[in-house]
């Protein structure tokens, strides 16, 4: 019923608008087309000026309303660089924006058609054209320089002491693998993937580097102020590891591993204080369209102190022992089922 009324009101409004429009055309013809054309020209000229003024006020109003809802503090060292680059660019582009929009609408208003106004025959001027080629070129060179400098810093080689974590995206969740004490991620092969046999990552058990690798799902733990290098992959389609608070992002491509590194600078607890939000968590968002669950492909990151991290890690059992309980010194005989850990707990 409500829908019907809305449709009826829309139709009515439409009809009225159309009748007015038609009538105004007749009036124009009756009063002399030229006269009413000049009148509507004045109205539109005024509206263009009004649009400029209200628009600029609107830009400031919008900023006031929304500036508290964006960005927040960057929570990684790279994030600081990204934000700085962003605000430099914002400053320059905003200046150009205001200048050119004022030019556009002010000229439109000022030089609207008038009885005795003679337009100025001005087909070209080399000096002007040179000026507005060179100035943008120089400005952009500066932005390019800054941008590339930061870009190489961010995408450069990870520090030697960085911890490594393997991140794997799948429809629709995240898996993580820690290299364990040896600091080496064991080899894997996609045809070995077999969750039923406790090998969701497809690890090759013959590789000794795999013996101490720890596998977890949905929640990644990182150490504050310790660089981390993520080795990123995907099982099925392309996903993307989006870390809004760290200002980092990298695609997860099946068959082509990618990497990114950064240093988290605040623990989850510190961020709760900084944002004033007791529910704050670092989230991993999938930023590359990956199917019907794309919008809900959420992972969590906990940033904590080294001691907390070590305690958490100590509570985890290497996947090798989960999959091969016979090799586990802690498991003697029939406690197989009790050892079967995390499987398929995907949040939707």
């Amino acid at each position: 019923m409500q829908t019907f009324f809305i449709v009826a009101i829309l139709a009515l409004g439409f009809l009225i608008t159309f009748q007015i429009a038609k009538a105004s055309e007749y009036v124009a013809v009756l009063r002399g087309y030229e006269r009413s054309r000049l009148q509507s020209n004045r109205i539109n000229g005024f509206l263009l000026l009004a649009f400029l003024v209200i628009g600029l006020v609107g830009v400031f109003y919008c900023n006031e309303r929304l500036k508290g809802k964006i960005l927040g503090v960057p929570a990684s060292d790279h994030g600081v660089l990204v934000d700085r680059m962003l605000y430099v660019t914002l400053g320059i582009t905003f200046f150009v924006f205001v200048l050119t929009q004022i030019g556009l609408f002010w000229f439109s208003y000022k030089y609207q058609e008038k009885e005795n106004q003679k337009p100025f025959y001005f087909p070209h001027n080399n000096k002007l054209e040179l000026i507005w080629t060179v100035i943008p070129a120089i400005t952009l060179t500066v932005l390019v320089g800054f941008g590339i400098f930061y870009w190489f810093k961010i995408t450069g080689t990870a520090p030697k002491n960085a911890m490594r974590v393997e991140v794997t995206g799948k429809q629709f969740g995240w898996e993580f693998r820690y290299p364990g004490k040896d600091g080496v991620l064991g080899k894997k092969y996609f045809k070995n993937v077999n969750p039923a046999a406790n090998n969701p990552a497809g690890q090759i058990w013959d590789d000794p580097a795999n013996y101490d690798d720890v596998f977890v799902e949905q929640e990644m733990h990182l150490v504050v102020n310790k660089p981390v290098q993520l080795v990123i992959g995907a099982k099925d389609v392309i996903h993307d590891v989006g870390l809004a608070h760290f200002r980092m992002k990298m695609d997860a491509v099946p068959g082509t591993p990618t990497t990114m590194w950064f240093t988290p600078t605040y623990t989850t607890r510190q961020m709760r204080e900084k944002t004033g939000n007791p529910d704050f968590v670092y989230e991993i968002s999938c930023d590359q369209m990956c199917g019907k669950g794309h919008w809900s492909m959420r992972g969590l990151i906990v940033v904590e102190t080294q001691a907390e991290f070590d305690a958490w890690m100590a509570s985890k059992k290497p996947q090798y022992l989960v999959a091969n309980p016979g090799k586990d010194p802690a498991v003697k005989t029939d406690t197989l089922s009790a050892a079967a850990p995390v499987t398929g707990a995907v949040i939707r």
Binding site: R37, S40, N41, N44, G45, L48, T100, G103, L104, F107, S108, Y111, Q112, E113, K114, Q117, K118, P119, F120, F122, L128, E129, W132, T133, P136
Partner: peptide, 18 residues
């Protein structure tokens, strides 16, 4: 940018019909 400035200059000192 060149195109934008050229459009602005086209409007400048014209006799614009809206």
């Amino acid at each position: 940018a060149i195109k934008v400035f050229n459009w602005l200059t086209t409007l400048w000192r014209g006799n614009i019909r809206f």
